[in-house]
Design a protein around this nucleic acid. Sequence first.
DNA 1: TAAATTTGTCTATTGTTATAGACAACTAAA
DNA 2: TTTAGTTGTCTATAACAATAGACAAATTTA
Lengths: 260, 260
Amino acid sequence: MTSAMQNDAKVDNLLSKPPERKSGIAIWRQIADSLRQQIAAGRFSNDDRLPAEFALAQEFGVNRHTVRAALQALGNEGVLESRQGQGTFIKRRRRLTYPIARRTRFSEGLASQSRATRALLLEHAIEPANIDVAGALDLTPGAAVIRLETLSEADDMALSCSTSWFSDARFSGIQHSLENTGSYTKALALHGVDDYTRTSTKIEAQHAAGDDLRHMRLSPGAIVLVTLAVNSDSKGQPIQYSRTRFAADRVSLTIENDPV
Amino acid sequence: MTSAMQNDAKVDNLLSKPPERKSGIAIWRQIADSLRQQIAAGRFSNDDRLPAEFALAQEFGVNRHTVRAALQALGNEGVLESRQGQGTFIKRRRRLTYPIARRTRFSEGLASQSRATRALLLEHAIEPANIDVAGALDLTPGAAVIRLETLSEADDMALSCSTSWFSDARFSGIQHSLENTGSYTKALALHGVDDYTRTSTKIEAQHAAGDDLRHMRLSPGAIVLVTLAVNSDSKGQPIQYSRTRFAADRVSLTIENDPV
DNA sequence: TAAATTTGTCTATTGTTATAGACAACTAAA
DNA sequence: TTTAGTTGTCTATAACAATAGACAAATTTA
């Protein structure tokens, strides 16, 4: 199932709308957001070349320079590439789908859509569990937990930043296992967890902030899908609590249920 | 499970960060976004009063007038209310959780969290199915489908705008059933569907656009969680395809799986 | 009542964003 | 080679956003 609404009568959410002024969002950014979304939704799919800057300016009802600012922002994100004398071309169109299911595995879920996925360890620390982490992991607040900050990539495209918590008592040193294997599943296997299941997922969306902007090369105002997830071992004991921020213009989440 | 990270060492994503300039997003809007999120995450939970404008200005490192612009925007959204001589107060803090499961029902899922939920019919039309709709509903492209535009509310707070498609051959006149009952489940029951299940859900996030801004009283730049969902009857036949835009600062989506 | 605190409104100034026009630099096609 | 079409760069101006200061209006506290 792909994103609907294309070539439909009710396309307000996809087609170029006149940008709003005095909205607190610069027009060039509104245009960048609109183009990014249209590209992900499959517009300009005949060839990879965008209309000329002047044509886009007319379409959005703005000056050519304003469109240029939008194209420059999308160029910095790695979505577009402008070539003098030739035009502006789409560099990255695809939006990966990340399946959420009882058996959710980062690499496996994306394996069919990309060549190489990996989790890069950015930072790790041992800290006392706050009330939320303790609740999710079934520990007492204040118990020592390992916090891992990771950046996940598929085919050299940054997809998500994740914060994970593990009980230090049970998974001491797991940061080394993750660093060596680049995979949570393999790291957990090294600590005696042969199988685990996703028992709970909460999904929110917000603006990207802080280090995430830098790590995923997002521009301010970009959106992240936030999942708050609990993984449990085969006995039902929660082993991992994570807060993952997915770049919303590169990933969509899917949930499949068997009928009846 | 509530949103984690509060009072944690790694709170970059929630605490007030110095707003970025030249980002194409006005500082007052960055502050409004930050405050909206902090309110939803439970800051200012001791009482419902925000720090004074001057104190907020110092916290964000900006002028008082800039903070005022942010507060005014949040006032228009119905999140805050300022009273001269007294202060600025939180009007709406809560974020509802919308469970996605095999049996997903709009009203039932929210019933325990709100007093009254209803779906308002905004618009309806009979149109030929485009390729996406036809694929989802297992019809041939061009077959007549009924498109319904609805606005869903809980306790007089707009939660989501939804576009739904039904086969006209099977569900002719369903718009009247929905209008009379205010519930998809009841409307479907009137057309012979005793039970149905959610077979597929895709989740994306994007900026609110078009009529959604007006219907849900969102400001430009606000985020919507988009679900593309297929519901099927007890025989596995798809009966409803929908594209729902949830106001991301009012709703989070949850998925529960039984362990093992 | 008086003082302190808070939001509301006004004026003025500066920095950023958007528009406008002109022309250079580069590419591809006639 | 010439022409048309494209992006890149420059200058200048107008509209909007942010800062700064002052004071009014309303409320609460001493």
